[in-house]
């Protein structure tokens, strides 16, 4: 089996790419995709450690994370559609109504 360090580094790199996507990109939809990327990086770490501990708990937690991601995607995309209908933009910098 591949060393745990390799899997954890891979997870860390994908998580950091997701963080970079949220900071750099201004398209709300792409920022949302970056959040999914971060969730997946954490899932990878759960699975890697779980299989080395011989415990199923990690897999069950990944199952719950997937459920939460599905709920989050449904609500988040509903919000994005609602914003687009009112403001006709998906650009985060254009949404300055509540900014002082």
């Amino acid at each position: 089996m591949i060393p745990l360090t390799y899997m954890m580094s891979l997870s860390a790199v994908i998580f950091a790419i997701g963080v970079a996507g949220v900071i750099i990109r201004r398209n709300i939809l792409v920022m949302f995709m970056s959040i999914e990327l971060m969730l997946n990086a954490v899932n990878l770490a759960f699975i890697a450690i779980g299989s080395r501990l011989g415990s199923m708990d990690g897999q069950v937690i990944v199952f719950f994370v997937m459920t939460v991601a599905a709920a989050e995607a449904a609500v988040g995309l509903g919000i994005i559609i609602s914003i687009f209908r009112n403001r006709e933009t998906v650009h985060a910098d254009d949404l300055t109504l509540m900014r002082w």
Binding site: Y6, L10, V13, I14, I17, G18, A20, G21, I24, R25, V30, M33, S34, L37
Partner: peptide, 12 residues
């Protein structure tokens, strides 16, 4: 792993 990192970079 390389494929995952490259395609994750592609996302952003």
């Amino acid at each position: 792993g390389a494929l995952a990192v490259v395609s994750a970079l592609g996302v952003i």
